[in-house]
Design a protein around this nucleic acid. Sequence first.
DNA 1: AGATCCAATTGGTCGGACCAATTCAAGTAT
DNA 2: ATACTTGAATTGGTCCGACCAATTGGATCT
Lengths: 225, 225
Amino acid sequence: MSLSLVETVSRRIITLARHHSSDRLPTERDMSAKFGVSRGVVREAAKRLELQGLLEIRQGSGMKVVDKLHKPLSSAVNMLVPDEKQRLYQLTEVRLALEPENARLAAERAKPSILKKLRGAHERLMNCRDFETQVLADMEFHCLIAEASGNKIGALLMQSLSDLLQSSLSHGYRLVTKDKAVADHYKIFMAIMAHNGNAAADAMRKHLLNARNDLTLKNRKLAPP
Amino acid sequence: MSLSLVETVSRRIITLARHHSSDRLPTERDMSAKFGVSRGVVREAAKRLELQGLLEIRQGSGMKVVDKLHKPLSSAVNMLVPDEKQRLYQLTEVRLALEPENARLAAERAKPSILKKLRGAHERLMNCRDFETQVLADMEFHCLIAEASGNKIGALLMQSLSDLLQSSLSHGYRLVTKDKAVADHYKIFMAIMAHNGNAAADAMRKHLLNARNDLTLKNRKLAPP
DNA sequence: AGATCCAATTGGTCGGACCAATTCAAGTAT
DNA sequence: ATACTTGAATTGGTCCGACCAATTGGATCT
């Protein structure tokens, strides 16, 4: 069972990306010459990697190495549940499963460096003046907790959920007020700092229940589906 | 911000797939003529859909519509955590978060038709004679519970986890003995049938803790990472 | 120094040719 | 009549050179 040429070239691009001093890759034409294959094969291989979240490709500009392995899941969820309200409810249910455990594991495992980042995100949320910054800080807080859990798969899931949530929030949906989020995040943060797994998990659960109960679109509270 | 031709053709292929009487799609050459684009564009569009888990493509044979939206996540997780033992441990942690909630929601929401399927999977596990059938029935049981929860996103995550687990199990890893799995699944099933969410979640949690504690490779019990 | 312009560069698309894998109809053997 | 084999047609995989669309960076102008 031999690999297709495209598969082989995909792997060579990954290797190249890992050893390249810049985040910029050679052009399609250069790689075609370098690997001894047609430009179409390079193109197809690069497109695979783009879809997998490993490259970003711009016409006229070239290819850039990125690390966004969560992107395919975000796309899949969008396709699976096209209705945004439904999607938000289901995302919140999944969050109610995942995030209390993230918080518990973070309380047990978090390193000082990441706790520092977490404090930074919390402070950015407290101090923010515009909605966009609020959303970014809020989601960053949650992603850092997932990262602090030490479970890479959980962190990838959280990054994807975060992207999806950000997209909905930019379409007018609202989960919780800033004040409630700040208060809830503070409790979560303090429990993690105190290495109290149960308290962290409980605080996260309450935060997400608040989010579910307060779901609004354009200042209109939504009924559950 | 206009769509690229490839993106446009991708969407047209999806529409075609949804309205086509067979699960077989027209050839690259036919779609090229039908859509008025070059064969390269059709090819690239089709490859996108293949990577997204919506098509399967075979040289000499053509394209088949499938529904495997979970595949991109499985690939991403494989890339993220290449080490299989690490991956299994992390998968089990994620399962410990997700699956008790799946079981709880299944207890609240499951319809008779899916409970019947669940019973079927349980019976297949009880009666199986070979390891491969055991694995399939075991994973099917878990995926049906996720489906019974009514949360499509949770079900997609579970399908992906299931694929990943099956892959590891085919490489020699073992999670629990068949007898333990049968006994644990029975408790989960009975709690779901009784619409007792808490009992279902507890039974699932215990089952997964057993799985974590019993992780072996080639009859050798593994230490946690 | 900052703004504008434009040619070079890079990705996107096209079409025709040829190669590799699969399918199925026709022919052969039992 | 049934089972097996063969080979041509079909379908996807790759190649090549040409041309189109978007971006970049150097040159020029203010």
